[in-house]
Nucleic acid binder design. Sequence first.
DNA 1: TTGAAAGCGCTACCAA
DNA 2: TTGGTAGCGCTTTCAA
Lengths: 345, 345
Amino acid sequence: MANINEVAEAAGVSISTVSYALSGKRPVAPDTRRRIEAAVVELGYSPNAGARMLAGSRTQIFALTEPLRKDTHAPTHMAFVLATAIAARRNDYDVLLLTDEQAQAGMSRVAANGLVDAILVLDVAPDDARVALARQISTPTVFIGIPDDRDGLICVDLDFEAAAARAVDLLVDAGHTAIGLVGQAETAYVKSNFPPRVRASVISRGAERGAAVAYGTSGGKRADRAAARATAARLLDGGATALILHCADEAHAAVLAELDERGLRVPEDVSVISVGATFDTTALPTPIDSIPLVPEASCDLAVDLALQCLSADRPDPGVRLIPPTYSPAGSVAPPSSQSSGVAAD
Amino acid sequence: MANINEVAEAAGVSISTVSYALSGKRPVAPDTRRRIEAAVVELGYSPNAGARMLAGSRTQIFALTEPLRKDTHAPTHMAFVLATAIAARRNDYDVLLLTDEQAQAGMSRVAANGLVDAILVLDVAPDDARVALARQISTPTVFIGIPDDRDGLICVDLDFEAAAARAVDLLVDAGHTAIGLVGQAETAYVKSNFPPRVRASVISRGAERGAAVAYGTSGGKRADRAAARATAARLLDGGATALILHCADEAHAAVLAELDERGLRVPEDVSVISVGATFDTTALPTPIDSIPLVPEASCDLAVDLALQCLSADRPDPGVRLIPPTYSPAGSVAPPSSQSSGVAAD
DNA sequence: TTGAAAGCGCTACCAA
DNA sequence: TTGGTAGCGCTTTCAA
C-alpha cells in the first residue's frame, strides 16, 4: 500500500498538494492535478483510514446498533440494515455493526474511542436502554423509531398515525362503516413502539369518521398463521366489510386464504388495505393496496440527520415523521349491498 | 475524550508506561498500575481508535461482505451475521458491514485503505466474484462457504456431504430402503454451493447403501408451500418410507402438513430427518431429528482463522469442513410393514 | 498556486 | 521497572 509520500514524489509535488488535490479543499493547477491523479492510479494509492481518522476530524464510519431480539422480523430488519448501509455509502460512510448485548456496550465503546462519527439506532423499543446512553455520550445519535422518552433526541419514523388514519379514510370514503384491524402479535404492542400507534390511530379515526372498528391480533411466525386466520374470521363474522392489515407477510397471506375459503372476493365482497408493510403487497395471491413502511425513506433521512449533526448547524432535537405514501392495487371498493360476513356460496 | 497524556499526568507516569500498563506488553509495578487504572477510570479514558490503527499494526476491525441477493433467506443470513459479530467481539474485533454491490467495491476499498485487518465473506456463490478479488488484495480473507474455484483460499463450511451421508446412514440403519429428499428451490442449486453437495451426497450414499433415492424441489417462499407439499406427496406416492428434508423452515412445515393430512404418523409411518437447518426443528408441529447447519460453528472458526492470518504462523489455504452433529428428536424409526405410500385411512 | 512543518494520539524501540 | 522519543500517514495552518 503506497502512501502519500510516494505519490508526492512520483508526481513531483509536495504531500500537501497531493492531499489538497484529492480532497479538493484547495485549488490545484490542472496540470499538477493530472500528474497527481496519474501517480495515484499508477501506485494504486488510497489514503490510510487510520491516519485520516487521526489527522482529520472524521472517521467516515457510522455505528448501527441493533439489539436483534428473538422476535425481530428478519426480512424487515435486513431491509433497514441494507437501506442504512446504502445511504451511508452514498455519503462516503461505512457502517459498523453493533449487535446484541454489544449494542449497549458497543455504543459506549465507539463513542469513547472515537471510532465513529455518529450512531444510528435501529429497532427502537418503547423503553429502550439506548436512550439513556445516547444522552450520556457526545457522539451524535439518531433513532430510527420512537422511544417513549424522546426528550432531546433526534428520531425518524414513518408517520404511522397518519398512515393508519389514511387507511381508515380511504375505506370510509369508499362507503365502509365496519372496519376490522388485523394487528400484530400481542407482544409487539409492548416490545415495539409503532403497533400501538397504528391501533390507536385506526380506532380514533374510525370513531371520528363514524365507522365501527374491531381489532384482533395476528403473529408473524409460521405457527401463527392460524391466529391471523382466526382473527380475520372473527372480524368478518362481526360484520366487517373492510380489513386493515398491519401484520407480517405470512399473516397477510393467511388472511387472504381465509377470505378465499369463504368465497369472498377482493374488493367486491371485502376491501383490504395494508398499513406499514415492508414487503411487496402486490406480490400476494391477491394484490393489496398499501400504505407501506419504506426503509429507504427512514434510513436516508436518518443518515442525512447524522451528517447534519457533524456540520456547522446541528439539527434541532425532535421527531421527524415521514409522510405516508399510498399505493393502490385495486383492493378497495365500495361495500357490497349484502353483509360480507354472510357470503353467498 | 481524555487522551493518554492526561492519564499519564494524572497518574504521575510517562505515557509509555500508561500504554504498557493497558496493553500488558511490559510488566508494570502493581502500585503504578493501580494509579494508572484509577486515572483511566476517573477520566473515562479510552484509547483513540484512529491513533491505534495508525501507530499499531491492527485496526481491530473485520469486514463482513454480504451480497444480499433477493433470494437470500433472511433469518439464516441474520444468524450468520450475528454469530460473526459475537465471535469477533469475543476477540476484541468490531465488524464493518459491506453490503450489496458495495460488497465488491467495498472489499477493494477497505483492503486499500487499511481499514480492516481481515475480510470475512458470507453467502458464497459457486462462481463468486469475490474469489478473484480476494486473490488480488493482501488483506487476509476467509470464506464462509465454498466457491467452485477455491485455489489458495481459506474456506470454512459445514461438511454437508458428511451430513447428508449421515442422514442416509441413519435411515438405512433403521431399515429404510426407499428414501425421498425434499431439496431446495431449483435456483438454489445454481446460486448456492451447498445444495448440490447435499443432493449428490444423498444420492451416492443411497446407492452405496442399496437404498432407492428419489428427489424433489421445494422453495422457501410463502408461495412455495404448495411446491413442498406436492414434492412430499410425489415422493410418498413413489414409495418412500423416509424423508430427508433440506429446505426452509416453511417447507418443513408444509411437508409435515402433507403427512398429517394423509394420516401418516412420524416416525411410525414415515421417518423424517432434517439436514442443514439453521432453525430449531424440535419447535415444528412434529419434532424432527436434525443434522443442523450451526452458524456459530462456522463463524467461530472463520474468526479464528482470520486471527491466525494476522499472527506469525499464517494458516495454510484450504477448506476446513466442520463435522456435522446429530440431534435426535424421535422422528426416525424402522419402516412399518406396509408401504407408507398407501396409508390406512 | 505551492511547500514546509506542526501536530493528531498512540505504539514500541532504545536507554536508563 | 520506567521514561524519552521516533515514527505511523495524514490534514491543515502558515509562509512563500
